Amino acid sequence: HHHHHGSGALAALHAEGPLAGLPVTRSDARVLIFNEWEERKKSDPWLRLDMSDKAIFRRYPHLR
């Protein structure tokens, strides 16, 4: 159930192989992290948004 927010940013994801479903670039990863943060913020208003490279690598090590 993907609803768009204002920016309408869509992340490019790997379609197949071992990385299927994972973001292709760091900016794609940022979109995913932001979208998930927006969702989680509803139940956790104090949740901090962390889109640093460090956060991205921790989450998606293949982007190193």
Rank of each mutant, 00 (worst) to 15 (best):
H1P: 11
H1Q: 12
H1N: 09
H1E: 11
H1R: 09
H1C: 15
H2T: 11
H2C: 11
H2V: 13
H3G: 09
H3K: 09
H3C: 13
H3Y: 11
H4N: 08
H4T: 09
H4E: 08
H5P: 11
H5M: 14
H5W: 13
H5A: 11
H5R: 13
G6W: 14
G6C: 14
G6F: 13
G6Y: 11
G6R: 14
S7V: 12
S7E: 12
S7M: 13
S7G: 12
S7P: 14
G8P: 13
G8A: 10
A9H: 14
A9C: 13
A9M: 10
A9Y: 10
A9V: 11
A9K: 14
A9S: 15
A9R: 14
L10Q: 15
L10M: 13
A11L: 06
A11E: 06
A11H: 05
A11G: 07
A11K: 03
A11W: 02
A12Q: 14
A12Y: 09
A12I: 12
A12G: 08
A12E: 15
A12W: 09
L13E: 04
L13F: 05
L13G: 03
L13P: 03
L13D: 02
H14F: 08
H14Q: 03
H14S: 02
H14P: 03
A15I: 11
A15E: 14
A15G: 12
A15T: 14
E16K: 08
E16N: 09
E16V: 10
E16A: 11
G17W: 04
G17I: 02
G17P: 06
G17D: 03
G17K: 08
P18H: 06
P18L: 06
P18G: 05
P18Q: 06
P18V: 07
P18F: 05
P18R: 06
L19F: 13
L19A: 04
L19M: 07
L19T: 03
L19N: 07
A20Y: 08
A20Q: 14
A20N: 07
A20I: 11
A20D: 04
A20W: 07
G21P: 02
G21F: 04
G21R: 03
G21V: 03
G21E: 03
G21D: 04
G21L: 03
L22W: 04
L22Y: 06
L22K: 06
L22T: 03
L22V: 03
P23L: 01
P23E: 00
P23G: 00
P23W: 00
V24Y: 03
V24R: 11
V24M: 11
V24Q: 07
V24G: 01
V24E: 05
V24F: 05
T25M: 04
T25Q: 05
T25A: 08
T25W: 04
T25H: 06
R26E: 07
R26M: 15
S27P: 05
S27M: 15
D28L: 02
D28W: 02
D28P: 01
A29T: 00
A29V: 01
A29L: 00
A29Q: 00
A29F: 00
A29D: 00
A29W: 00
A29P: 00
R30G: 04
R30Y: 08
R30H: 05
R30D: 03
V31D: 05
V31Y: 08
V31N: 07
L32R: 02
L32A: 05
L32I: 14
L32S: 03
I33P: 00
I33F: 05
I33K: 01
F34V: 06
F34I: 07
N35T: 11
N35S: 10
N35H: 13
N35W: 14
N35I: 15
E36F: 04
E36L: 06
E36P: 00
E36D: 10
W37V: 02
W37N: 01
W37D: 00
E38M: 15
E38C: 13
E38S: 14
E38R: 15
E38D: 07
E38H: 15
E39F: 07
E39C: 09
R40Y: 07
K41S: 11
K41W: 08
K41L: 08
K41C: 09
K41I: 12
K41T: 08
K41E: 04
K41H: 11
K41D: 05
K42Y: 07
K42Q: 11
K42I: 09
K42F: 07
K42N: 08
K42C: 09
K42S: 09
K42R: 10
S43M: 13
S43K: 14
S43L: 15
S43V: 14
S43R: 10
S43Q: 13
S43A: 12
S43T: 14
D44F: 10
D44R: 05
P45V: 06
P45H: 07
W46L: 14
W46N: 15
W46F: 15
W46R: 13
W46H: 12
L47I: 11
L47W: 13
L47D: 05
L47V: 13
L47C: 10
R48P: 13
R48H: 12
R48K: 15
L49E: 01
L49H: 02
L49P: 05
D50Y: 04
D50W: 03
D50V: 04
D50E: 07
D50P: 02
M51R: 03
M51Y: 07
M51I: 15
M51F: 08
S52I: 01
S52W: 01
S52E: 02
S52Y: 02
D53E: 09
D53L: 15
D53V: 08
D53F: 07
D53H: 06
D53K: 07
D53A: 07
K54H: 10
K54C: 11
K54V: 08
K54G: 10
A55T: 08
A55H: 11
A55W: 04
A55K: 06
I56L: 08
I56T: 01
I56W: 01
I56N: 03
I56S: 00
I56P: 00
F57R: 06
F57P: 01
F57H: 11
F57Y: 13
R58C: 11
R58T: 14
R58K: 15
R58Q: 15
R58D: 15
R58N: 15
R58Y: 10
R58A: 15
R59E: 08
R59M: 08
R59G: 02
Y60G: 00
Y60T: 00
Y60Q: 00
Y60D: 00
Y60R: 00
Y60C: 01
Y60K: 00
P61A: 03
P61T: 02
H62Y: 09
H62P: 00
H62I: 01
H62T: 01
H62M: 01
L63G: 00
L63I: 04
L63N: 00
L63H: 00
R64S: 10
R64H: 07
R64P: 04
R64Y: 10
R64V: 09
R64W: 08
R64Q: 12
